[in-house]
Each structure stands twice: as C-alpha cells, then as structure tokens.
Amino acid sequence: MKLIKSALSLALLTSVVISSTAMAKTNIKIGHGAADTYHMHKAWVKFKEIVEKESAQDITVDIFPNGQVGGDRELTEAVQTGIVDMTSPVVEVMSGWDNAFTVPGLPYIFPNRAGALKALYGEFGNKLLAKAENFGLIGLGWMENGIRNITSNVNCPITKPDDLKGVKIRTMQVDAHMDAFKAMGAKPTPMSFNEVYSALQQGVIDAEENPLGHIYSSRFYEVQKCVTLSGHVYSTHMVLANPDFYNGLSDKDRELIKSALKRAIDYQQEIITQEEQEQINAIRKAGVSVTELSPEQSKVFENVVAPVREKYLKAVDPELVRALESGKN
C-alpha cells in the first residue's frame, strides 16, 4: 500500500511539474501534512501568492496539503531526495537524526508564545536550522504548529496532573511527550494523526493533545467533552528545503524566497491571533467545556514534568541550552 501511495504521489507531482514548468522557469513543489483549513497551510498559500506575483510568474508554487505525499517523516525524506522541494514538518521529526531537535518541543520549555518566537528567531533557532545541513537539508525558518492543549472525555474538567491518571491519551510518537504524560500518570498512546478522530469516537482512546487549530479544524471537539488550555508544549514546524533546489536558485530568487517566507510567517501569526478566540468560542458553542488554567494550576503541571525536561536537556550540547536560556526571556 505504501509503495502504491508513493507511486501515485510521484505521478501526481510529476504531472503538476510538467504542466507548471511549461509556463514557468522554476516550479517549487511544497508538501505538508496539515489540513488545508489550517493556519500553516494558509501561510504557504500566502508564500505562493507573494512568490508568483513578485516573480511575474517566473516562479510557480504547487502545494500538496493533507498528507497527500506522506506524513512529516516521509515528506522530510522526500525533500532530502528532491522529490519535493520544500516542506514544514514538526521539528521533533528531526530528532531521529539529532536529539537537539527535541528541545523546542519539551514541555514548558518556553514561558509563552512570545518567548518561543524570540528564541526560535534568535541564536537558539539559528543553531538548530544550521544543524539541518548535516542531514542533506536547508533550514529556512519556523512556522507555528501551535500551543498544545488537552482534550478529554473523562475526568472533566482536567485542572491538575492527577486528573490524567490512567487516562489513555493520544500523543505524537515523540519520546519527550510520552514521558511527560507518563509523569502525570496518563497512558500515552501514539498513533497517526489521521486516526485520532475515529479513535476518540470509538473510545479506543479517552483523550488527545493538540494545538487549538488542529482541535478545531479536525473537529476533535465533536467527540470530546472538555478542553483544557494547558499550553504544555509550544509546537513548531521547521521549514526545510532541498539543497540542490535551493542552491540552484539565482541570488535574486533566493532573496525572494526568504522574503516571501518571512512575510508568510508574519501573516500566519496574524491569523493565529484572530482565529484562536473564535475557535474557543465555537468549541464552547458546541457544548464542550473549555477550562483556562490559573498560573498556579499551570505551575503544578510544569513542576511535575520538570524532571523530563531536565533529562532531555542534559543530552544536548550545553551551548544550545545556553542559547535557549538567553534567548527566550
């Protein structure tokens, strides 16, 4: 089945490239795993609009959302091999090559969104982007995935770690995330994102954790009783490009790509600011309780997972940790 899907994906990409390159000097193929209603996809659409307009269609951009070409790991490998030119996986996907990429996704590693963005667009983030070159990739920047929150069908509302004891909660296949929920007493259950809705609906799992954008766009709230704005992880996408594609661009085109990406990322932040309160209101309107933790309640969660955070920080270059600490405050 995977081989068939890969062959179909390659055929799809090839047909698009043939039709696009007939009219343009350069065609950029971008793949990602998120829904086409998600703010990260909207940022890529903005990138496409800017690039095509400002290049006078000398560069065209084709975007393949919804995991059409594969999940984050498959897409990253597709960029390495040049099947796809650019992608934006969650940064933890890269931890399979270097555990330094686990750091941005550690629980409560950033004080808030502003601190995360400051660190990622400073020395800390630049050090991580540079590491991508060791694995046949060019790191170009960061798109937000979102601040991860907990939804559940049991023990509602969840206001303390003890409320998660014995709860089967879906997480990504990320060791640090699973360790954090184990520390809270939960039973982390990694599974494919595309399986989460039906697993919640059928009671295979009790809970899940995701940014509000995913909770809303994938309609998880339809099969959950409560949402807790735990904010336990700031989740980020790492923008990656194939080196042959990127280095083969003219200086002028590279500058356009960098400029368009920055403006697309700024646009994404505008969308997130606008959408989050609207999403909370819509989820509440659907009859789901939404709980905002007090600073004291959040601190309890943060303290429970502190040993997990320290465990993973000890496994990376102290210079990276220093850059993180100086950059996020």
Rank of each mutant, 00 (worst) to 15 (best):
M172Q: 05
K53L: 11
I30R: 04
Q224M: 14
V233P: 01
A35M: 11
T60S: 12
W44D: 05
E144N: 09
Y246P: 04
A7M: 11
N112T: 01
N281S: 15
K165C: 07
K182Y: 07
K225Y: 00
I83P: 00
T26V: 15
I283L: 05
D98R: 01
V321T: 06
S88P: 03
H39K: 08
D163L: 12
K182E: 15
I18N: 08
N99E: 08
K262Y: 08
I265L: 12
N194C: 05
I257T: 02
H177S: 07
D253F: 07
D36S: 15
K160E: 07
I109G: 04
V90F: 06
R254Y: 07
G67R: 01
A241F: 11
N281C: 06
N210E: 13
M178Q: 14
N194K: 11
N134E: 14
R322M: 02
F135N: 06
V305P: 02
K168E: 03
C156G: 09
I18F: 10
Y216N: 04
G327S: 00
P157I: 09
P211L: 07
Y216L: 03
N99Q: 09
A207M: 13
A264R: 05
P295Y: 08
S152Y: 03
G31N: 04
S217E: 15
L75T: 00
G125M: 04
R309C: 02
K262M: 11
D317M: 00
P157N: 11
M184N: 05
V316Q: 01
W142Y: 15
W142E: 05
E296T: 13
K299Q: 15
V93P: 01
I158W: 10
F124Q: 00
Q269W: 09
M143D: 07
G96A: 12
